[in-house]
């Protein structure tokens, strides 16, 4: 019981329940199926991106370029589809975006693994580079006339429930997020590669001594993040029915916040898929539902900031207290 309570996931879950009750009791429409489906739809992109960010953070690195990769993948995919295969099905777009994302992710990996550069510096650089290159060389105007397959995908639904006013639709894109979650979970918990990522985050030197190929692991990590970002970008564009080269970039911190709230530590080695999913839910609810209880949009950012401060502050203080106690014991 004590173990369960001290887990970060429990803390986040309690916060979520508290927030849901707070919002729902003040505005019952929060509990409507329509709103829940909308919330799920809103978490789709953040959810996919968070899985990528999770494995980077677990490995002891950080990636801030993933949003640029996402929008890059989206824009290139839409542009290519429009130019060469306007009638292609939606999965073609996803494949293009993934391949582009993977390629850009491998560029990150190259700098990080080959030259052992700090991950924050590399990805800060590539964030700017990728977006600059996109705007300068590929295009800077918003593409509103997206291929028809994207338009129909935007309207698709796996569940349609008629409501008093309109219908509540559950969008199939949630399946992509669920797939990303399951793949990441299996990867982290049941493959040696995944354990290698934890090992790398725990102690790089020990990981090398144990025989992990750290370079290969890093290539995988940043490649995987790139791939997921490409998919996330395409999903975003399909839901928004447009490809705007200025979109997504700027939301990095939201995603990183969700992952950190979920218990991943920026120093590496810690973080779970479950925690990250909870972190995403918390951030999405705070971002989109506070308005239901009359918190103005501008204040939402303040609330999010507060949740992050408290949410990451409490475990940090707990850890330090625990640390102090052990020091005391050794000393006395």
């Amino acid at each position: 019981m004590k173990r369960l309570l001290s887990r970060n996931e429990t803390l986040v879950a309690i916060t979520i329940i508290g927030l849901i009750l707070l919002i729902g009791l003040n505005n019952p429409s929060f509990f409507s199926l329509g709103n829940i489906f909308t919330l799920l739809r809103t978490s789709v992109v953040t959810g996919i991106l968070a899985m990528g960010v999770l494995i980077v953070i677990v490995s002891g690195g950080i990636d801030v370029s993933f949003t640029a990769i996402a929008v890059f993948g989206l824009y290139v995919a839409v542009k290519l589809m429009k130019a060469y295969m306007p009638d292609a099905p939606i999965w073609v777009g996803f494949v293009i975006a993934s391949v582009v994302g993977l390629g850009l992710g491998l560029i990150n990996a190259f700098f990080i693994a080959q030259f052992r550069l700090p991950t924050l510096i590399v990805t800060l650089g590539t964030l700017s580079m990728f977006q600059g290159f996109l705007l300068f060389a590929i295009g800077n105007e918003i593409i509103r006339a997206v291929p028809p397959s994207m338009k129909s995908f935007a309207r698709a639904a796996i569940v349609r429930i008629p409501m008093t006013r309109g219908t509540a639709n559950l969008h199939p894109a949630i399946l992509i997020t669920i797939a990303a979650i399951i793949v990441t979970w299996l990867l982290l918990n049941y493959t040696m590669l995944g354990r290698g990522i934890y090992a790398l985050g725990g102690s790089r030197e020990a990981a090398e001594r144990a025989g992990f190929n750290v370079t290969r692991i890093q290539y995988f990590i940043y490649g995987f993040v790139g791939l997921l970002s490409g998919i996330a970008g395409m999903t975003f564009g399909s839901l928004a029915r447009q490809a705007n080269p200025q979109d997504i970039v700027g939301t990095e911190l939201n995603v990183i916040a969700a992952v950190v709230l979920g218990g991943a530590q920026l120093t590496g080695g810690y973080g779970t898929v479950l925690g990250t999913v909870l972190g995403v839910i918390l951030v999405v609810i705070a971002n989109s539902s506070l308005i239901l209880i009359g918190v103005p949009t501008v204040w939402q950012r303040v609330v999010i900031g507060l949740i992050i401060l408290v949410g990451t502050g409490i475990p940090a203080i707990q850890a330090r207290r625990k640390g102090k106690r052990t020091v005391g014991l050794a000393d006395i």
Partner: peptide
């Protein structure tokens, strides 16, 4: 330094 991983379990 024992070359252990602080973040992993004893068993692992």
């Amino acid at each position: 330094d024992f070359s252990l991983f602080p973040n992993l379990t004893v068993a692992e």
